[in-house]
Design a protein around this nucleic acid. Structure first.
Lengths: 329, 329
DNA sequence: TTGAAAGCGCTAACAC
DNA sequence: GTGTTAGCGCTTTCAA
């Protein structure tokens, strides 16, 4: 059932119906009588406008593209939930995609979203997404980048101060008396990972400690990282504390520790929290990024851009908390 | 840049351009020469068709609506990821929504998706979504329901045999010698929860054991369930094993056990797996639903309906595995 | 081998 | 107060 059929049935014009439907009866100076007839009829037949046609006509789709690395993980999943909730308040829906860190998927996804004319894009970019971002910007589509900043390109951005949070975390371990603190991370050029690494390095260096670093590539659903970490731990028996650059690496690390032949006690700290961390023994301290607050800022920023495409770019660094749990010396 | 502008520029008609773009040059009997000119020009200016306009014209949006309870949780998050991956193979994108179990949100979401003319819907329904489902069916939109079946309505369905899996799990505990097995669950009328409950009851009854049941409502980000469970455990000191009707309730239970003043050893079993379960002490055994397989079946079923709307309804019950971990007697 | 034209369902400027 | 009309960008039938 379409607007023309309604018009025909009621013997009025399409525009009259359209105005009434969109609550513009007043300003379109439609008589109360007509308005009521139309509303009643709409109600009776349960008419719902075709959002596609509306979007085509108005150029607005009330859909936001959300692109993350992995919607199934414990960082992006909850973030996605919060983002959706905040966007719902503004009557936007979410078209989502997980890139799994792959650039080809990421590019394709950005393109498809642009083809579908999303009104805005929220992006946690992969390593090399400069080109896609340029395209989004060129099309003048409101964009908010979060979690990872894109070097060399100015965009709206919401993130954490990875360097400082990381440095604080490591300094905390040092203050607790740990002398041989290992960093376990992934081989990634992502800026936030580099910052976390740098925070570790600087903290260690300043106290004239020796750095111990393991980089192990991480493929989901694979036990290899745990094995690699286990071996590395055996090879480095002096290491007395571990700092993991992200939570899922830490989970692998916990498995490794659990399977260790020669049990030993190490301090553990991770970047990003995880449900698990307060339930394992020893508990895991961590740097926690406030997920809901991140989502709130992201949506707020996007909505501002949506309202006014000329709005100045914003950047919001949200402080991370150090969550100390009782696994320390 | 639109198809008409291209046509004008190349002095051909819109239809010629359209045919070429859609790879129908052959069947539209466009000369190789024209086809090449068009393709070259398209390439040169980087033309991308407006998917919205295309959808309006064809009635297909290449978008699937995915409606779950909570995309941030450890069941639906990974499922969503897999569903997206499988759908990508068929060039569908995903419009998602979390209902948080609320019927009003769920209904609204279904409506919005229908307004946007999604080509199909994948739904993990809330308690009372009969009406929405009727609407979807009436519109003849391909639908696959998963995780929870809707009583009284025939639909495509993918799920687990909750009753049998649950019964097996409890019988396993009994075989291990546990005599006082408590069920901790949520007060929910969802069919899958009722089935799990029934599986427990029947197993217990058949062995003439005494049932111990705690129902505690579960609101995310709230420690109350853990407190309630803790208290219940103290009040029921004879309970020597616990069966949790779902994984997040079990996580709350683990917290409760951890905080117990009088430490005691209980066997633990949960419905649904969780990363955490092999890392805590004692480890948690569980009934595991194979997430990837579920996603695969869901998408397969949907694609079949998409291809042929007259295809007969299907129902696929995927067996769950009993994962035994070393926490048992 | 190609073009013209109608149509998908809606909006919005303008005319009456 | 209300209707006409011209789009939005694409597909598809039919005629040439």
């Amino acid at each position: 059932m379409s607007i023309s059929e309604i018009a025909k049935h009621l013997k009025v014009s399409k525009s009259t119906v359209s105005l009434v439907i969109n609550g513009k009866a007043e300003q379109g100076r439609i008589s109360k009588a007509s308005a009521k007839r139309i509303l009643d009829y709409i109600d009776e037949i349960g008419y719902k406008p075709n959002a596609l046609a509306k979007s085509l006509a108005t150029g607005k789709s009330r859909t936001i593209g959300l692109i993350v690395e992995n919607i199934g993980d414990s960082f992006f999943g909850p973030i996605a939930l919060y983002i959706e909730e905040y966007l719902r308040k503004y009557e936007y829906q979410v078209l989502y995609s997980s890139t799994l860190g792959k650039n080809d998927i990421a590019s394709e996804v950005v393109q498809t979203m642009m083809d579908k004319h999303v009104d805005g894009i929220i992006l946690a970019p992969t390593d090399k997404q400069e080109f896609d971002v340029q395209r989004i910007i060129k099309q003048n589509i409101p964009l908010v980048v979060f979690d990872r900043k894109i070097p060399e390109i100015d965009t709206n951005y919401v993130g954490t101060d990875n360097y400082q949070a990381s440095r604080n975390a490591v300094e905390y371990l040092i203050d607790q008396g740990y002398k041989h603190i290992g960093l376990i991370t992934i081989p990634s050029g992502q800026p936030q990972m580099l910052d976390r690494f740098q925070g570790y390095s600087d903290a260690i260096e300043q106290k004239k400690l020796k750095p111990y670093v393991l980089r192990t590539s991480f493929i989901e659903k694979d036990d290899r990282p745990a094995v690699v970490i286990g071996k590395w731990l055996q090879d480095n028996p002096q290491v007395d504390a571990l700092y993991f650059s992200t939570n899922y690496v830490c989970v692998a690390g916990l498995k490794a520790i659990k399977n260790l032949k020669n049990k030993r006690s190490v301090g553990i700290m991770a970047f990003d929290d995880h449900e698990i961390f307060e339930l394992v023994e020893p508990q895991v301290s961590c740097v926690r990024q406030p997920l809901e607050k991140i989502a709130e800022q992201v949506v707020g920023m996007l909505v501002r851009q949506l309202k006014d495409k000329g709005a100045p770019l914003e950047e919001k660094i949200i402080p991370a908390e150090l969550i100390v749990r009782k696994n320390q010396k």
